[in-house]
Amino acid sequence: MFLAPFKHHRPTELSAVFEALAKYGDEAAVYAGGTELLLALKARVLRYEHLIDLKRVRELAGIKVDGEELVIGALATHHEIANSAVVKQHVPAYAALSEGIANIRVRSAGTLAGNLSFSEPHSDPPSLLAAMGASVTLVSPQARRSVPAAEFIVGEFTTVRNEDELIAEIRIPLTRAGEGYRYLKFGHLERPAVGASAGCIIRGGHTRYRLWLGALGDHPIHAAEVEDAIAGVPVALLPDVLPKLAVSFASKISATSDLHGSADYKQHLASVLMQRALAAACAAASGERVSHA
């Protein structure tokens, strides 16, 4: 389980990263934590002549609040995010998700941007980022563009990121009073079998909800028809309508049977987690103190 020989580059400026990428093209890959890429290289599933380490590029570092958004730099690790006072204060649900990713070794090295770029389907962050209305900022030598997190991942190990682009940052709208989010996952292996992310937004007596599923398909799944059906339903009345809607929606998801479980079991888990996540999100929106343990 050794890496094949490669040349290692350690640029300190974004411009140098782009120069290296332009020079080596398909033979180069960028990495930060390496928790996904290095495993694939060791297993010899992937092979690159050049590895570009981003960790010294200061422009990609940092976690801060910018206006109404939390900005997570591409180099922020899950562990940093989970333990950041800013994240815990302004987007507590995302801090909680980060604390539950994989194990401490992965959290200490792995970055959110790396996780999104790799887009392994059995992953935690994408569905909650979609539910929270987050966006991914991509930069290339020529341009900078923002893509909704909901649209970033298009398939298994496939994103909308172009070859010459890098993730610069992830922007998550700050969770305001009257809003609550929650991510829940379930699985008996290392990675989640199913994840569900829910949001509850109470504004001026009107309540809207957000519901996304993760790990089931090759990209986050939007439970739009459930959201539509429960829009405006007061929190207290949700238990009357949600179960049927969740079961019905989950039964239509195309799930595959694999080591994580049979298709029908995963559909069932999806309906259970949707309901639980939404209940927790509502509790958070109502200002209840929620344990994210």
Partner: peptide, 22 residues
């Protein structure tokens, strides 16, 4: 009791890594 099982499919052990075998 709860999670371990080496699974074979088409003659191949499909979870013989510490990621897929819990």
């Amino acid at each position: 009791t709860l999670s371990e099982e080496l699974v074979y499919q088409d003659g191949q052990p499909i979870n013989a890594t510490m990621i897929d075998y819990h």
